[in-house]
Amino acid sequence: MKVGVLALQGDVREHISSLIACGVDAVPVRRESEIQSIDALVLPGGESTTIAQLSEVFGIYDLLKQRIASGMPVYGSCAGMILLATEILDAKVGQKSFGGLDISVRRNAFGRQVDSFESDIEFADGSHELIRAVFIRAPWVEKVGDAVQVLASIDSHPVAVRSHTALATSFHPELTGDHRIHRYFIEHVARPALEKVK
């Protein structure tokens, strides 16, 4: 499986290391041909307004939107979650997302950087083991569509959600050296979705 990490801005390197640790081929992608060549995509942490804008400027916005809509497995952390949302609350005027995950996301919902925090959370992967989650100016999910499952919450705000082909987290597993979320994406989202297509 070849997984691309959208490399317009953000913590691309950390996602690539986590994916490689999960045993998949991981590459940064910025160009049309690179995006065409991948089986699955990760949208990294970063500044969602900057990433969305650069994707338009460099003419890959439509391609990304279309590949995600047609079922390419995708995982987004923090800014990546915002970029996957069908609705963005507290968005910059005119801010676009790629869509693909039927959720409403509130940007910077947990506050400014002084409110950024880490915490142990329960992630519903069936293991009942806690995950150390790092939240940085993080968004939360306010509304989920029928086909979306909530995998983790903080104070009743969903912070990890999935559909058949998409996974999104408000937090940054790529910063902790704990690869369980990436492995979950590979084994429980991307692989089943790709096998179904075959």
Binding site: G10, D11, Q113, S116, F117, S119, R137, L175
Partner: peptide
């Protein structure tokens, strides 16, 4: 679930999110 602010990871992580940017 204790939430801890101002940790090294949260502070350094914030800068990681700015990478590749202006």
């Amino acid at each position: 679930m204790a939430e801890v602010t101002g940790t090294g990871r949260v502070k350094r992580g914030m800068a990681e999110m700015l990478k590749g940017g202006v």
